[in-house]
Design a protein around this nucleic acid. Structure first.
Lengths: 132, 132
DNA sequence: AGCAAAGGTGACGCGAACGTAAATATGACG
DNA sequence: CGTCATATTTACGTTCGCGTCACCTTTGCT
């Protein structure tokens, strides 16, 4: 690593993924490590992308969906049409995430309520066990 | 349906799933429809469970994880040990969901920021196009 | 009796996202 | 120089969550 690039092993250790995964992501055009001879060298850009990939996965997006969204974070030299299209994709994505958050909030509230119920029943059971 | 049970078709229409899915969930012991002769009759309990199954799926839980969690919502005639164990599972689950929400919030904020960036660039591009 | 609709049971298939094994190459080190 | 560690390519295998197909049974009309 020339201070800016990392080997596959360093990447794996940093992000807790396997080499297979990184090669797989490259094959799917999610990452673009440069080649020094036969080996891969992952750049700062690859690391940024990988971080977003892993996050996207945690929220249930497919690799293909993620691939499309990654362009959003590469707004360097885009032309108007491309940028506008990307913007729309992002809007839909944002809306999805907001809906997801709302649903998640509800689920959390319900689970908390259910747990309070369970806690009460536990107390009752234990009180009875003591009384006996 | 005797007012309390539903046929497979009614279930499919209500929850927007296929028969295959319901049979699959039964095979995986997520649902327990009663049998009238050869046919399945889904109870109120099955409907409650299915609702939770579908929600769990939206949050990225596997069917197996969901199966274990479903017991939490069947706090009818549980014994102390079982109930306590279930409670712990629920706690971990709740923690996971809360972490998920936090991460989601951050992702949303970042995406919003990125979109503002894109919006500005779009305006610049359009301003320049007008000036030319 | 005839027959179409609805339901059922295997069993095989499929895309996503990697795991894993085999064979080969590259580079560092004693 | 050998060899040990690390990487690479190729390719087949695996798990999950159903889809799909072929082939019966049951039920309700007409």
């Amino acid at each position: 690593m020339t201070d800016q690039t990392m080997t596959i092993r360093q990447m794996c250790d940093s992000f807790d993924v396997t080499p297979r995964t990184l090669r797989f992501y490259e094959a799917k055009e999610l990452l673009f490590p440069i080649r020094e001879g036969t080996k891969r060298l992952f750049t700062r850009r690859d690391r940024a992308r990988l971080k977003l990939i892993l996050r996207g996965k945690r929220f249930g997006f497919s690799l293909e969906e993620i691939r499309q969204l990654l362009d959003l974070y590469e707004t360097d030299d885009q032309q108007e049409v491309q940028l506008a299209r990307t913007y729309e994709v992002a809007e839909r994505h944002l809306k999805e995430m907001q809906e997801q958050r709302a649903a998640l909030d509800e689920a959390i509230r319900e689970l908390e309520a259910q747990m309070n119920w369970g806690a009460e029943r536990l107390n009752q059971l234990r009180a009875r066990a003591k009384a006996a």
